[in-house]
Amino acid sequence: MSKTLIEDALAILRDKYMFPDKAEAAAAVIEADLAAGEYDGLSEEELGERVTARLFEVCADRHLRFRVRAVDLQEAGETEEDAEAAWNERQRLTNYGIQRTERLAGNVGYVKLTGVTSPGNGGRAIAAAMELVANTDALIFDLTANRGGDPDGVQMWNSYLFADSETHLNSIYDAATKHTRDFWTLAYLPGQRYVDKPVYVLTSGSTFSAGEEFAYNLKALRRATLIGETTRGGAHPTDQFPVSKTMEITVPVARSINPVTGTNWEGVGVVPDIALAADEAFGHAYTLALRHVVETATSQLVLEEARSALEK
């Protein structure tokens, strides 16, 4: 059973991975392991872990994984349509990755994102979250538990922080089509934009993929102050390919190219402007935001609220 699973996974790897030479080198290593009986008697979870470790040894790509499929995907089926339907339902049930949106004391906005939804699924939720914080004087995005998502979703979130459609956020090169797509700030957004006010982004060693792009774009454009830990380091957009009902291989099929830096965060992560332990990042960001409010507030109500929050 494991032999068939591995052979099918390696066929997908050779066909889809954006670095063909690395795909061939990794496949050769794993085939040698298979011939030597290295994967005999392993459970599917153990098999996934062992093969993924070997893939990383050769390719050093954190998006390249062989693993047990999520239960909802197993129940949905093996076709692309089945997987997409299950993903859409997961997005709905997790509120499109928007875990918290609130106005903190001192008129500071706070949005905690555990994922980045596609605008087609969660665009209305993104707009609603931004509307709730639109009238705050500073904004904190908490990405410390963000595991990634959709580049189009990053584009929409980031677009709220710029005045118009004239800002180039990111580019993605697709290996199959050899086409580079440029992501610019959107010309139209539902609701108000959040401009000319400070933005803070909290990161951790677990922040990954599209969560990292969210932070990297804003850092490169100097639109936000990043506070926390260096992120995990996965910059290659990825597709998931079922190998069986219970196993899948995730394969990077493209790569990000930032227009400011000319590179991306693959393997190195996004380095924060202010390095702190992840559990200390919020307190520091909130303090900076409150100090800004105290210095700039024109409302006595907000000023008193910010001063009181700072004292606490």
Rank of each mutant, 00 (worst) to 15 (best):
S206C: 10
A175Y: 07
G211A: 02
F208G: 04
P190A: 15
S171V: 03
K197T: 12
Y194V: 08
T177Y: 06
R181K: 07
D174Y: 12
A210E: 03
T203E: 06
V201P: 02
S206D: 12
A176Y: 00
S171L: 10
S206K: 14
R193M: 01
L186E: 06
L202D: 14
V195S: 02
A210W: 02
A176L: 07
S209Q: 04
L202E: 11
K197A: 12
D182T: 04
V199A: 05
V199Y: 01
L186P: 01
P190F: 15
S204Y: 10
R181C: 06
S204E: 11
A176S: 06
S209C: 13
V195W: 04
S209Y: 07
Y194F: 14
A187D: 15
Q192C: 13
T180E: 12
R181F: 11
L202K: 09
T180N: 03
P190K: 11
S206L: 15
Q192S: 14
S204N: 13
W184L: 03
S171E: 12
T185F: 03
V201M: 08
V201I: 15
T180R: 09
V199C: 13
F183G: 01
S209G: 04
H179W: 11
F208P: 04
T207K: 08
V195P: 03
D182S: 11
K197M: 09
L202G: 13
G211W: 01
P198K: 03
S209I: 05
R181A: 06
P190W: 12
L202I: 15
A175I: 01
R181L: 10
G191C: 02
R193N: 00
L189V: 01
G191M: 03
R193I: 00
I172S: 08
D182Y: 06
V199Q: 04
S209A: 10
I172Y: 08
T185N: 03
A176E: 12
T185E: 02
Y188R: 14
D182M: 08
A187V: 01
S206E: 12
F183V: 01
A210I: 03
I172L: 11
R181D: 14
Y173I: 11
Y173H: 11
T203L: 15
W184D: 04
G211E: 02
F208D: 12
P198G: 07
S171A: 14
G205N: 09
D196M: 08
A176I: 00
V195C: 08
G191Y: 03
L202R: 13
F183W: 09
P190Q: 14
Y194E: 10
D182N: 10
R193K: 00
P198T: 05
I172F: 06
Y188H: 15
W184F: 11
T207W: 08
K178W: 05
T185K: 06
Y200D: 00
I172D: 11
A210T: 01
T185H: 04
T207C: 09
P198N: 05
D174E: 13
T207Q: 07
F183Y: 15
Q192I: 11
Y188W: 15
H179S: 06
Y173N: 08
V195F: 08
S209W: 04
P190D: 14
S206V: 13
I172G: 09
S171M: 07
G191R: 04
F183N: 03
Y188T: 15
F208Q: 06
R193L: 00
T180F: 08
L189R: 00
G211R: 00
T185A: 08
Y173K: 13
R193G: 04
D174P: 00
T207S: 08
T177S: 14
S206I: 13
A187F: 10
R181H: 10
